[in-house]
């Protein structure tokens, strides 16, 4: 039962993140349709990693994972988890999709999910620890990249998200604040982001609830402050943290195995067992 619940939470958030930017302008579908009309020729990449038609098909393949989401049988869940790993890895490598952090977070979360559904017996302590490890390594990479003067001073944040941002509340802030205060606000946000990423990169040594609270608050702040498109990057991570919380709350002492997957007992197990003890005696 619990394995299915965890699968549904993680795979559901993963699929939401994967497809939430599919539509729109610009969205993945529009980009792929445009790219198939004008494929890229680039010396550093083989045809397989340049062909936009292949990238498009690979992007759509996880739609097949909807089936085990609604009817989570063991083999379907296992096949879906491998499909998620494969499509995310390929999307990380393909020239048309390699830049999108959605596929990096999706890959790491899918690796955890694949381990989870392929394990015969799950130790919830181990599963939770590995989930924390995945969250930690994802935010550690983002944090280390910001340990440079351009980010620490707020210059990068100011240029990227504040100075020319036409979305509310930035035009209003530009009008309401002095140039120095507006620039200073960017520095505050930059250091806040570095602080939050530091906490999240320490996930392996922090309690699940705290990591989930910081992760949810940071994600919400970033999406409201900059762009909802970040949901594609953060959704699978949040799903993984919710799964870690489920594992912490319900299964801190007891391991559960593949038998837990059956919602209904089989006909064989419903029959009253015959007492065979007399044979031994």
């Amino acid at each position: 039962m619990m394995r299915r619940l965890v699968f549904r939470v993680v795979a559901g958030s993963w699929l939401f993140g994967w497809f939430c930017n599919a539509l729109g302008d610009p969205g993945f579908l529009q980009n792929f349709l445009d790219a198939t009309q004008h494929p890229i020729v680039h010396d550093s990449f083989p045809e397989l990693l340049r062909d936009p038609r292949i990238a498009f098909v690979v992007y759509l393949l996880p739609l097949l994972c909807l089936m085990p989401l609604f009817r989570p049988r063991l083999m379907w869940m296992r096949a879906a988890s491998l499909l998620m790993v494969g499509t995310a890895l390929f999307s990380c490598l393909h020239l048309e999709t390699c830049n999108d952090a959605t596929f990096v977070t999706s890959l790491w979360v899918a690796l955890w999910l694949a381990w989870f559904v392929w394990s015969k017996r799950i130790d919830p302590t181990l599963a939770r620890g590995l989930a924390h490890g995945v969250v930690g390594v994802l935010f550690l990479g983002a944090l280390v990249g910001k340990l440079t003067p351009e980010h620490r001073s707020g210059e990068a944040f100011y240029r990227l998200y504040f100075r020319d941002n036409p979305a509310w509340p930035y035009p209003w802030l530009r009008e309401a604040l002095t140039r120095e205060s507006f620039r200073g606000l960017a520095t505050v946000f930059a250091r806040g982001a570095i602080f939050a990423e530091t906490l999240l990169s320490l996930a392996p040594i922090l309690p699940t609830r705290f990591v989930l609270a910081v992760g949810a608050l940071t994600s919400l702040t970033m999406m409201v402050a900059w762009t909802f498109h970040l949901a594609s990057v953060l959704s699978s991570i949040l799903g993984l943290l919710v799964a870690a919380l489920i594992l912490e709350r319900r299964f801190t002492k007891k391991a559960f195995d593949a038998a837990d997957l059956d919602s209904r007992p089989s006909k064989r197990s419903r029959r009253p067992r015959r007492d065979r003890s007399y044979r031994a005696g």
């Binding site: 680039h42 550093s44 990449f45 083989p46 890895l89 990380c92 490598l93 020239l95 390699c98 830049n99 952090a101 990096v104 977070t105 890959l107 790491w108 390594v137 994802l138 935010f139 550690l140 990479g141 983002a142 280390v144 990249g145 910001k146 440079t148 351009e150 980010h151 210059e155 990068a156 990057v233």
Partner: peptide, 23 residues
Amino acid sequence: HMRPSSLARWVVLQPAPKMYGFA
């Protein structure tokens, strides 16, 4: 910069979380 010195290096480094980093 999408110009790896080798395909093997590209395959190894792409899963490395490096988003929103560097200037």
